[in-house]
Nucleic acid binder design. Sequence first.
DNA 1: GTCTATAGTTTGATAGAC
DNA 2: GTCTATCAAACTATAGAC
Lengths: 203, 203
Amino acid sequence: MDQFIGKGGKREEIMELSVPLFAVFGYDGVSMRDVAAVCGLTPAALYYHFSHKEDLYLEVVAHAFREKSAALLIKLKDSDSPWVQLENFITNLAHLAAKDEDFLRLMQWVRLDSEEMRQQKLVTHVFKDLFLAVHALVAKLNSRYDPYMLSMSIIHLVLIPFEGKKIRKFMPGYRPEHDQPDVLARHVIDLLRMGLFEYRTSD
Amino acid sequence: MDQFIGKGGKREEIMELSVPLFAVFGYDGVSMRDVAAVCGLTPAALYYHFSHKEDLYLEVVAHAFREKSAALLIKLKDSDSPWVQLENFITNLAHLAAKDEDFLRLMQWVRLDSEEMRQQKLVTHVFKDLFLAVHALVAKLNSRYDPYMLSMSIIHLVLIPFEGKKIRKFMPGYRPEHDQPDVLARHVIDLLRMGLFEYRTSD
DNA sequence: GTCTATAGTTTGATAGAC
DNA sequence: GTCTATCAAACTATAGAC
């Protein structure tokens, strides 16, 4: 299997070793020397494989997201009802977010990227597949909501609590179970399904 | 009024001019030279007012958030019902998020900060007041949901769409009205109130 | 209180040996 | 294909004149 990768194997290895670095420290927080160090290379050797820091970064992020989004979609069965599919998707996404911190942090770095050209390239690799998956699902639900806004809401309800995992611990009312993907998935599903309608009598 | 600020006036001026810089490029993306330049100072002169880059950054972020959170709470009237207060809060927060991009970006930089000590200092200034405000409100609602999780969900539903404003434009289904605070507030309030309950018959 | 000058380090990137 | 050696630039921070 590896023989088909051929000379690209080294590039692949560099990218995989770089993912945690860029996920934690971001583009400006990582130097070519840092990358070279974790790869056991000299900075000069690194420039043989990637001619610019930005090339390296773009490929690293694209590589990190290539399979993730696809994996989420594979798990869905068309035979299930749209509601069950949505519940499964939310649960799968929560588990991915809880497990893969690099995935979440890279998404945030992309959101904050100040170089518009670079950001635009990244968005395609990082967000589009994920968004399209949710959009297709909520479209089937045929609800009263704008499918674009509803897709955004669902993605944010699931992902952002894990993005802010570290800082949430400082907030009053925090309990460790709030970090469990099944607990969050249950919360989001309940909220989406029923809302707070017990109190809608107040208008 | 200004006479009471005294010699701290220059520091204040530097901080205000630095906010947009750190909001756009983050801690690692801004040099002391950059800050000095926008302030019309030399880098050395800057070190008279702030002895380290980190000191400057910490004070800049704290300064940027000092009034924001408080302003959100002042607008609430205890005479209103909890539901009306929540609706008003959501609308106010959406307007703040739509207007003040620096506010949103600084929040994201804090979430991504890799220096744990620095992050912990920042969280208090940036998130705690906002979170407490929402927490107090949802506690009054006495709903079936965990108030901690519900507070998080509400904050995320309102703020994150504006944080991702740039990249949302690349997603299918985007329309300019999705950026209007009133439209988003309406969407969030409806979603919270009613959920998608039309379809809860499917289980 | 603010400046010039500069130290000492780290950065992204290249030239050329092997 | 990977190395040593090195460059020019940018970085944080300091010393000391005014």
